[in-house]
Amino acid sequence: MSLWEYANPVKFLRLSERVLPVLWVLAISSVVVGLVWGFFFTPDDIRQGSTVKIIYIHVPAALMAINAWFMMLVASLIWLIRRHHVSALAAKAAAPVGVVMTLIALITGAIWGQPMWGTWWAWDPRLTSFLILFLFYLGYIALWEAIEDSDTAADLTSVLCLVGSVFAVLSRYAVNFWNQGLHQGTSVPVTTGQRSVADVFFVPLVVSMIGFGLLFLALVLYRTGTEIRIRRTKALLAREGRN
């Protein structure tokens, strides 16, 4: 039993139909638990007051915005190398979710930034990088929409995703170089283990992050399923239409 068997669209559909109900329940409940816990059962921050609570949406959304692109990159590579259709369609399905996450991160960031920095928007490296990521998402989605033949679209968007990833990383460094920012350091550094947030805030934040991750997974599985059904309908119609 190999993992690649789920690259078969029909097998994938059957699996996702079994997994999705559980995943939806888990995702929604952990998002709700994380947010309610964060909003109502944590103390206000000494300096930032209650505005800090937006962290429970802002940070998970920002995290998933980047992870979604990363997932698209991996899926594009799998499509280019192994030509698994599910992979290409999963990348297509993930893009709108990713762009919404990016938008949420940008908007909540602006709402948080207003009372903290006194401005809705600053050309801070992190904010700017997210804006550029947003543009990359838009281009990627627009390219999918513009091309009729789905295999051609999959090929072109995959290459765009690869090239875009390289340039996104370049832009990140370029932007860092271009303007030193206002943004506070990362809240949850993986490598150093030194957290800038206390445990009372951190635990609900983790719950919320897990929730957003599961929500992303559920949305992508669901949307991939839809894309597969569209392709399947087209293939069936094409077979019927033939003489």
Partner: peptide, 13 residues
């Protein structure tokens, strides 16, 4: 729309 984001690093530097 596709090319301008790719121009960002060149433009910045």
């Amino acid at each position: 729309l596709l090319v301008l984001p790719l121009y960002v690093p060149t433009l910045i530097f």
